[in-house]
Amino acid sequence: MSDAAVPLLQVPLHALHVELGARMVPFAGYAMPVQYPAGLMAEHNHTRAAAGLFDVSHMGQLRLVGPDAAAAFETLMPVDVIDLGVGKQRYGLLLNDEGGIIDDLMFVNRGHDIFVIVNGACKAGDMAHIQALIGSRCEVIPMPDQALFALQGPQAAAALQRLVPGVEKLVFMTGGAFNWQGTDLYITRSGYTGEDGFEISVPGDRAEPLARALLAQPEVRPIGLGARNSLRLEAGMCLYGNDIDTTTTPVEASLNWAIQKVRRTGGARAGGFPGAERVLGQLDGTVPLTRKRVGLIAQERVPVREHVELQNTSGRAIGQTTSGLLGPSANQPIAIGYVEPEYAAVGTPVVAMVRGKPVPMTVSAMPFVPNRYFRG
Rank of each mutant, 00 (worst) to 15 (best):
G111Q: 06
G66T: 07
E195P: 09
E309K: 08
R375K: 14
A150C: 10
A22S: 07
L94Y: 14
R110K: 07
D145A: 14
Y343L: 08
V339P: 07
I117K: 00
L255W: 04
S230V: 11
G39K: 01
Q181G: 02
V251R: 03
G176P: 00
L20R: 10
P360L: 11
V354L: 02
L40C: 10
E342Y: 05
D196L: 11
P358I: 09
R232T: 07
A70E: 08
L170F: 04
V86M: 08
L170T: 01
Y91D: 05
A207K: 11
T290W: 09
P250I: 08
A216Y: 04
A235P: 12
S190M: 05
N371P: 09
A276W: 11
L151I: 07
T290N: 10
F27Y: 13
T348K: 00
A270W: 12
A69R: 15
E199D: 10
V79A: 03
V351S: 03
C238G: 00
V350Q: 02
V287N: 01
K357T: 13
M32Y: 09
D97S: 12
Q311C: 15
L289S: 11
V346I: 15
P303C: 05
V202C: 06
A344D: 02
V116A: 05
F149N: 03
V251P: 04
V308N: 00
H14N: 06
K88M: 13
N109T: 05
F149V: 01
I114W: 14
A268V: 11
S314L: 14
Q161Y: 01
G60V: 04
G125K: 13
I134Y: 13
S230T: 15
V363R: 00
T249H: 08
A330Y: 09
T322Y: 04
D196C: 13
P218G: 12
P222D: 03
G266H: 12
G194K: 09
H46T: 06
I259S: 00
V220D: 06
E43D: 10
L231E: 06
H14T: 04
G135F: 14
A72R: 06
G337R: 02
M366N: 01
A330K: 04
N331C: 08
R264D: 04
L170H: 05
P78K: 03
E300P: 02
F172N: 08
A15Y: 02
P360C: 10
H112S: 15
D284W: 08
P37L: 02
E98Q: 12
P303S: 14
A71N: 07
V354Y: 02
D184S: 14
R189N: 11
M32C: 13
E300H: 09
L133A: 11
E306P: 01
A147C: 06
P274N: 02
V65W: 02
G120K: 06
R293C: 15
P222C: 08
T247L: 10
G197P: 07
A49W: 07
C238N: 07
G337H: 02
G166E: 00
L148S: 12
L239T: 13
L289F: 14
P288T: 11
I223H: 02
V25E: 11
V65I: 15
A50D: 12
G85P: 07
M77Y: 05
G324A: 04
D243W: 01
Y343R: 00
M32D: 01
T322A: 05
N119D: 13
Q181W: 07
G85L: 11
P7Y: 07
M41L: 14
L16C: 12
M32Q: 06
N331T: 10
E219D: 15
